[in-house]
Deep mutational scan, measured.
Amino acid sequence: MSIQHFRVALIPFFAAFCLPVFAHPETLVKVKDAEDQLGARVGYIELDLNSGKILESFRPEERFPMMSTFKVLLCGAVLSRVDAGQEQLGRRIHYSQNDLVEYSPVTEKHLTDGMTVRELCSAAITMSDNTAANLLLTTIGGPKELTAFLHNMGDHVTRLDRWEPELNEAIPNDERDTTMPAAMATTLRKLLTGELLTLASRQQLIDWMEADKVAGPLLRSALPAGWFIADKSGAGERGSRGIIAALGPDGKPSRIVVIYTTGSQATMDERNRQIAEIGASLIKHW
């Protein structure tokens, strides 16, 4: 067993022997301040990774656009098919120029040779490549099948209805392509620590998230040296922004954090800054 596999296998073990965790309302004060600064709703939840206990939450059962955070769930569904012998990570998928959609920095470079399922998941999570996500959605049967996968996990809230990039439209009061912070946090925890996926697939999923290259201005910008984070960000229309993450000190994750916002007129930089400040408060009061 590799060191990384050992780390993920012992996530519940280490967490069980940690000192009790206590909620700190100071972080919620910052979440509410972010709402004021952005002029928009902000949803927040913080779960203990081992027990699933909610440590703090704000608007945990209000719907927010998922945006690209759905790509972690998508690759979880792909990995479940791999575990069941219905898919192979090494299978190569070929596609054409007509398949390319807006923001496809990886797939646009491989029109000639195609990409493997493993490479597509890596591109979808680490670079948020939209064509990679659409190609992977095709392998599982489309958005409705991802929703069905989530329902089978016990998540009857999260739903995907459309493809990239239309799913980022974020129309107010439109339930399409949305989740709730509580539902997303619980589902992410199941994917990373539950028995739904094999140990190898859980490790692969967290490795992809740990290698995320496009979430630097968010929670990662607030992390002290030595902290662990595996995350996936999302951005959408109407001032929408979000991030889902597993993080913790001492090089291992111990909490799940989900943050979503929508309806702001603020710039992307300002949305990023507010999420980073929430992260800084979380870490300060850990």
Rank of each mutant, 00 (worst) to 15 (best):
H24P: 02
H24N: 08
H24T: 05
P25N: 05
P25Y: 08
E26H: 13
T27V: 14
L28A: 09
L28P: 05
V29D: 05
V29C: 12
K30N: 05
V31P: 01
K32T: 15
K32F: 15
D33S: 02
D33L: 02
D33H: 02
D33P: 01
A34L: 05
A34H: 07
E35S: 13
D36E: 08
D36T: 08
Q37A: 04
Q37K: 04
Q37P: 08
G39E: 06
A40C: 06
R41V: 10
R41K: 14
G43N: 00
I45N: 13
I45Q: 08
E46C: 15
L47H: 10
L47V: 07
D48S: 04
L49G: 12
N50M: 15
S51H: 13
G52R: 14
G52Y: 11
K53D: 12
K53L: 13
I54L: 09
I54P: 09
L55N: 14
L55C: 04
L55F: 09
E56T: 08
E56M: 08
S57G: 04
F58P: 00
F58V: 14
F58E: 07
R59W: 13
E61I: 03
E61R: 05
E62C: 02
R63Q: 14
R63E: 09
R63Y: 14
F64C: 04
P65Q: 04
M66Q: 12
M66E: 04
M66T: 10
T69H: 11
T69A: 11
T69D: 01
T69V: 09
T69Y: 00
F70C: 08
F70H: 06
K71E: 00
V72F: 08
L73R: 00
L74I: 14
L74N: 02
L74D: 01
C75K: 00
G76R: 00
A77R: 07
A77P: 02
V78M: 14
L79E: 12
L79G: 09
S80F: 15
S80M: 14
S80H: 15
R81L: 06
D83A: 05
D83M: 04
A84I: 12
G85Q: 06
G85C: 04
G85K: 07
Q86F: 15
Q86S: 13
E87W: 04
Q88C: 02
Q88S: 11
Q88L: 10
Q88I: 03
L89M: 14
L89K: 05
L89F: 11
L89H: 10
L89G: 03
G90W: 03
G90D: 07
R91I: 07
I93S: 14
Y95E: 05
Q97G: 09
Q97W: 06
D99W: 07
D99L: 05
L100T: 11
E102H: 02
E102C: 04
E102D: 02
V106N: 15
T107R: 01
E108R: 14
E108M: 09
K109F: 11
K109N: 12
K109C: 12
L111M: 06
D113M: 02
D113H: 02
D113I: 06
G114E: 03
M115Q: 07
M115W: 02
T116H: 09
T116E: 15
V117G: 05
V117A: 13
V117M: 06
R118L: 10
R118A: 10
L120V: 05
L120N: 02
S122R: 06
S122F: 13
A123G: 06
I125Y: 00
T126R: 06
T126L: 07
M127W: 12
M127S: 13
S128A: 00
S128T: 01
D129F: 00
N130Y: 00
N130M: 02
T131E: 05
T131M: 12
T131S: 05
N134F: 08
L135T: 08
L137S: 12
T138V: 07
T139G: 06
T139L: 08
T139F: 05
I140W: 10
G141T: 11
G142T: 05
P143F: 07
K144M: 02
E145K: 15
L146S: 07
L146F: 13
A148F: 03
F149Y: 07
H151Y: 12
H151S: 09
N152D: 13
M153E: 03
G154P: 06
H156E: 10
H156P: 10
V157K: 07
T158M: 04
T158V: 11
R159Y: 02
D161Y: 02
D161P: 00
R162E: 05
W163S: 08
W163C: 03
E166F: 13
L167Q: 06
N168T: 12
P172D: 03
N173T: 11
E175K: 13
R176E: 11
R176C: 15
D177W: 00
T178G: 03
T178K: 04
T179G: 01
T179N: 00
A182T: 10
M184T: 03
M184I: 02
M184K: 01
A185V: 09
T187K: 12
T187N: 03
L188R: 00
L188M: 14
R189C: 06
R189L: 06
R189W: 03
K190H: 06
L191P: 01
L191C: 13
L191Y: 10
L196G: 08
L196D: 14
L196K: 14
L196V: 10
L196M: 10
L197T: 10
T198A: 04
T198C: 14
L199H: 10
L199G: 10
L199R: 07
L199T: 10
A200Q: 04
A200F: 14
A200W: 06
S201H: 15
Q203W: 02
Q203K: 01
Q204K: 02
L205S: 03
I206N: 02
I206K: 13
I206C: 12
D207T: 04
M209N: 01
M209F: 10
M209Q: 10
E210W: 11
E210L: 14
A211I: 09
A211T: 15
K213C: 02
K213N: 06
K213H: 03
K213P: 04
V214T: 08
G216V: 11
P217V: 10
L218D: 04
L218R: 06
L218G: 04
R220C: 12
R220V: 11
S221R: 06
A222M: 12
P224A: 11
G226M: 07
W227V: 03
F228A: 14
I229W: 04
A230M: 05
A230D: 00
D231K: 05
D231R: 10
D231E: 14
K232W: 00
S233C: 03
S233P: 06
S233V: 07
S233E: 01
G234S: 11
G234C: 09
A235D: 15
E237K: 11
R238D: 02
R238H: 12
R238C: 03
R238K: 02
G239L: 01
G239E: 09
G239T: 10
G239H: 14
R241D: 14
R241E: 08
R241P: 00
G242H: 13
I243H: 13
I243F: 14
I244Y: 11
P249R: 12
P249C: 04
P249V: 06
P249W: 08
D250W: 02
G251K: 15
G251H: 10
G251N: 07
K252D: 15
P253V: 11
S254H: 04
R255N: 05
R255T: 13
I256G: 07
V257S: 13
V257C: 08
V258I: 13
V258S: 05
I259K: 00
Y260G: 01
Y260H: 12
Y260S: 09
T261Y: 14
S264Y: 08
Q265A: 08
Q265C: 09
A266S: 05
M268Q: 11
E270Y: 05
N272C: 05
N272A: 14
R273I: 05
R273Q: 11
R273N: 06
Q274P: 07
Q274A: 13
I275C: 11
I275F: 15
A276M: 07
A276S: 09
I278H: 01
A280Y: 05
A280H: 14
S281R: 07
S281P: 07
L282H: 04
I283V: 04
K284Y: 08
K284A: 05
H285W: 10
H285S: 05
H285D: 07
W286I: 04
W286A: 02
